[in-house]
C-alpha cells in the first residue's frame, strides 16, 4: 500500500460535526458489567443518590463511548483514506469539570487540533479535542490521539 500523505493545513483546526448524546442507565449498567465494576454507585440509582449523585454517574472513560456514538463515527477517517485496520489508539485524555449523570443531554464539539507524521509517513498521528457541554456548561474535555500505520492489508 502506498503512503498517503495528508495536508496538515487542511486538517489542523478542522471542526468535525457537533452532535448530542445521552448516557442511558441501561447502557451504563452494561458498561459496568463489561469492565467488572462492582461498586453499586455505578449500577444502582439509590446507591448513586446516597453517594451524592442525581442519577448513575457517567464513569471516567465513558465519554469516549458517547463520542463513538456519533453519526458515522469513522466517516472523517474514511474520507481521508484511512482503513480502520490501520488505526492504533495512541493516547486518550479527559478533563472533568463536574460529574455527569445518566439522562443528561450532552453536546459534543470535536475538532482536529494537530496532525504530524513520523518515520517518513509510516506513522501518522491525528489529535482530536472535544468539548462536552450540558446546556451551556462545559462539563468535560476529551483529547484523543490515533496513530495510522502503513499495513500490508490482504
Amino acid at each position: 500500500m502506498t503512503a498517503t500523505h495528508l495536508d496538515p493545513q487542511s486538517l489542523i483546526g478542522k471542526a468535525l460535526p457537533t452532535f448530542t448524546a445521552t448516557a442511558e442507565r441501561g447502557r451504563l449498567r452494561f458498561f459496568a458489567k463489561a469492565i467488572g465494576e462492582v461498586d453499586p454507585v455505578y449500577t444502582d440509582v439509590a446507591a448513586a443518590r446516597v453517594a451524592g449523585y442525581g442519577d448513575l454517574p457517567v464513569p471516567p472513560t465513558f465519554f469516549y463511548s458517547l463520542e463513538l456514538g456519533r453519526p458515522d463515527p469513522h466517516g472523517f477517517l474514511r474520507d481521508i483514506g484511512v482503513d480502520m485496520r490501520q488505526i492504533l489508539h495512541g493516547e486518550e485524555g479527559f478533563t472533568y469539570h463536574r460529574v455527569v449523570v445518566a439522562g443528561e443531554e450532552l453536546t459534543f464539539r470535536p475538532r482536529i487540533v494537530d496532525y504530524y507524521e513520523k518515520k517518513g509517513g509510516a506513522l501518522r498521528f491525528l489529535v482530536r479535542e472535544t468539548q462536552v457541554f450540558a446546556a451551556q456548561e462545559l462539563v468535560a474535555e476529551l483529547r484523543n490521539v490515533i496513530v495510522v500505520r502503513q499495513l500490508e492489508l490482504v
Binding site: H89, G90, E91, V99
Partner: peptide, 16 residues
C-alpha cells in the same frame, strides 16, 4: 474511583 469518589477526579490521561 474505588480509591476516591469520582467527584474528586479532575483529569485522567493514558498513553497506550
Amino acid at each position: 474511583t474505588r480509591w476516591l469518589p469520582q467527584q474528586q477526579l479532575r483529569s485522567f490521561q493514558v498513553r497506550f
